[in-house]
């Protein structure tokens, strides 16, 4: 078991699986005394397919407790996040847009395998509360009806998921 005082305090973990589908997300964790971890995690996603274009961004902050008092440890904690995603579809020269926002508060459990030279592998998973909002700038009444229906549907199940599988560096 590593001594708390000798533990590296900084780490950066890019989400490698996200990279594979055009999503850019990385987190920085400041680990105090090997035990108390403070996380910040920005994300960005851009993609276009056919007549649709998507842009999403978000940020998550979180706290976690490393129960072995080291980088190399399991952990428990909570993340709070906000994300906004917009999709635009062009149909017959007219643009239809939809924006979905999400506020989330998710308890999490995870494991970090860390080696002394700096490498870490981190896995986390959580399920918690999610508050969604759907909106459009379109004047089309049918599009607006569709967005209202989506808004109700998304709020039927106020659930948000959180996850990470990443390769990172401690320093």
């Amino acid at each position: 078991m590593a001594e708390a005082s000798g533990e590296k305090v900084h780490s950066i973990n890019p989400d490698l699986f996200g990279l594979a589908n055009g999503s850019y997300r990385l987190n920085y964790v400041y680990l105090m005394d090997g035990t108390h971890g403070f996380l910040i995690e920005p994300s960005l996603y851009m993609n276009s397919s056919g007549s649709e274009e998507y842009t999403s961004y978000g940020a998550t902050v979180g706290y976690r407790w490393h129960w072995d008092g080291a980088q190399d440890s399991g952990f428990l904690g909570v993340n709070i996040g906000y994300a906004s995603g917009t999709g635009i579809s062009t149909q017959g020269g007219e643009d239809f847009d939809l924006t979905v926002t999400q506020f989330s508060m998710v308890p999490k459990i995870g494991w970090r395998w860390a080696w002394d030279f700096g490498l870490n592998i981190t896995f986390r998973f959580g399920i918690g509360y999610g508050d969604y909002g759907a909106s459009t700038e379109s004047d089309d009444p049918l599009a607006q009806e569709g967005v209202e229906a989506l808004d109700s549907l998304l709020n039927l199940l106020p659930v948000a998921l959180d996850g990470e599988l990443s390769l990172g560096w401690n320093f």
Binding site: N47, E52, S56, V147, L150
Partner: peptide, 30 residues
């Protein structure tokens, strides 16, 4: 139709990986 379009956009926003998979499904296997 417009209502359906909004649902398609919502799926694209909420499941970005799937939208990408659709886009690339015709890529030839190695």
């Amino acid at each position: 139709m417009r209502r359906l379009l909004m649902t398609v956009l919502a799926l694209g926003i909420l499941t970005p990986g799937l939208a990408f998979a659709d886009h690339h499904e015709e890529a030839p296997a190695a």
